[in-house]
C-alpha cells in the first residue's frame, strides 16, 4: 500500500519549461541592449524616464488588483514590460510626470479595464503612447539629439535640432538643406528619436534572440518590414531609410508581436504584419504625422479577432461535404 500522499491529476504529467513569466523576462532581456544604449546616448534623463515608467506601471497594476480584490500578478513581469516599452517610445525630453501618467493609462485603460493580462484588445504600451501624444503633442515631439551625434551634419543640424530623421524627411528638409543622414547613423542609433527606437541594430539583435528562442514568430516582423520596404519602392521613397528610421524595428519586433493582441494563426500573423506596414506607410506618406507605427499597430490590434476568424487553419482530415 501507499503510505504517502501522491498527486492525482489528469495527464499530461510533464510540462515544458516556458512560462508567461519567463517569456516576459526574455522580452525584457531582449530589450536590454537597446535600453542600455538609450541611457548611454541620452544620459540619465533616459534612465529616469525608464525607471519612472516601470515603477508607475507596476504600482498601477498592484493598486488596481488590490482594489478589485483580484490576485496580484505583478510578479509575472508583464506590467514592468509594458512600462519599459512605453518609456522606449517617448522622447528623452519628456517630463517625468507625463510618462507617469502614460504608464497609469497604459495599465489602467490599456489593460485592466478589459480584465487584465490576456483580455486586453490593444497593446497597453501603445495605448499609453497614443494617450500622451494626444494630450501633450508638443512635449511628445520635442526631440533631442544624442550628445555625440552632431559630427556628421555639422552646424546645419542646429537648425533642425528638434526633429527626428522622419520629421526632416516629411518636411522636405533633407532636400532643402541638402542633408543626407548616413545609414550607419540610423543603424547604430546616432540620431534623434525616442529612447528605444534609435538603434536598429540593437533592436534587431533582441528581436532575433526572441525569434530563435521561439518567444515570438518571425512572420509578423518579416511581413511588417517587407511591406514597408516594398511600399517605399512603390512610392519612390528610399526603402532603406524608411525601414531604419523611426519606430519600425521597435514596433515590428516588440510591439506588433505582443502575444495577447496579435493573431493566433500563422496566416493571420502575416496579414497582421502586412496591415501594419501598409498603415504605417499611409500615415507617413499621406498622414499628418511623420510616423505611423504606433497607430498602425493599434488599428491592426482591433482587426485581430477578425483575422483569427478569417484564417482558421484547415483541420487535419477536415471533411468538406459535411451533411
Amino acid at each position: 500500500m501507499l503510505d504517502t500522499q501522491v498527486v492525482v491529476s489528469p495527464a499530461p504529467h510533464i510540462k515544458d519549461v516556458i512560462t508567461t513569466e519567463k517569456a516576459m523576462k526574455m522580452v525584457m532581456l531582449a530589450l536590454l541592449p537597446a535600453t542600455l544604449f538609450s541611457v548611454i546616448a541620452f544620459g540619465f534623463k533616459a534612465l529616469g524616464l525608464i525607471v519612472c515608467s516601470m515603477v508607475f506601471a507596476v504600482a498601477t497594476e498592484y493598486t488596481i488588483q488590490k482594489a478589485l480584490k483580484k490576485p496580484v500578478t505583478v510578479y509575472d513581469g508583464s506590467a514592468a514590460l509594458t512600462g519599459l516599452l512605453l518609456a522606449l517610445t517617448v522622447t528623452p525630453e519628456l517630463p517625468w510626470w507625463m510618462i507617469a501618467v502614460g504608464a497609469v493609462v497604459s495599465i489602467g485603460l490599456g489593460k485592466h479595464i478589459f480584465g487584465g493580462l490576456g483580455y486586453n484588445m490593444f497593446n497597453p504600451a501603445l495605448i499609453g503612447r497614443a494617450f500622451l501624444l494626444a494630450s501633450w503633442p508638443v512635449a511628445m515631439t520635442t526631440w533631442s539629439w544624442p550628445s555625440k551625434a552632431l559630427g556628421w551634419a555639422g552646424n546645419q543640424v542646429d537648425a533642425v535640432s528638434g526633429a527626428t530623421a522622419l520629421n526632416l524627411e516629411k518636411m522636405g528638409m533633407l532636400k532643402t538643406l541638402n542633408l543626407e543622414i548616413p545609414y550607419a547613423n540610423l543603424l547604430w542609433g546616432n540620431i534623434s528619436g525616442s529612447l528605444g527606437e534609435t538603434s536598429a541594430v540593437l533592436l534587431l539583435i533582441g528581436g532575433l534572440y526572441l525569434i530563435v528562442t521561439k518567444v515570438i514568430d518571425w512572420r509578423i516582423p518579416v511581413s511588417f518590414l517587407g511591406t514597408v520596404f516594398v511600399l517605399s519602392l512603390v512610392f519612390q521613397k528610399d526603402p532603406i531609410f524608411q525601414v531604419l528610421a523611426g519606430g519600425i524595428f521597435l514596433g515590428a519586433f516588440f510591439m506588433a508581436t505582443d502575444w495577447v493582441t496579435s493573431p493566433v494563426t500563422k496566416k493571420g500573423r502575416i496579414y497582421f504584419g502586412i496591415g501594419c506596414g501598409v498603415i504605417t506607410m499611409l500615415i507617413r506618406i499621406f498622414g499628418g504625422y511623420p510616423e505611423g507605427v504606433c497607430y498602425s499597430i493599434l488599428i491592426m490590434n482591433a482587426v485581430t479577432p477578425l483575422l483569427d476568424r478569417l484564417t482558421v487553419p484547415k483541420r487535419f482530415g477536415e471533411v468538406k461535404a459535411h451533411a
Binding site: T20, G116, G118, K214, V260, P263, V264, T265, D308, P313
Partner: peptide, 26 residues
C-alpha cells in the same frame, strides 16, 4: 511542480503544435 493556471495570453504555441490543426487556446 503544481503550477497555477493563469489567463490565456494567446501566444499560440498550442496552435503551432496541435497535430490536428486545431486552435486549442480558443
Amino acid at each position: 511542480k503544481l503550477l497555477e493556471s493563469s489567463p490565456c495570453v494567446r501566444c499560440a504555441r498550442c496552435v503551432d503544435v496541435c497535430p490536428y490543426n486545431l486552435m486549442p487556446c480558443l
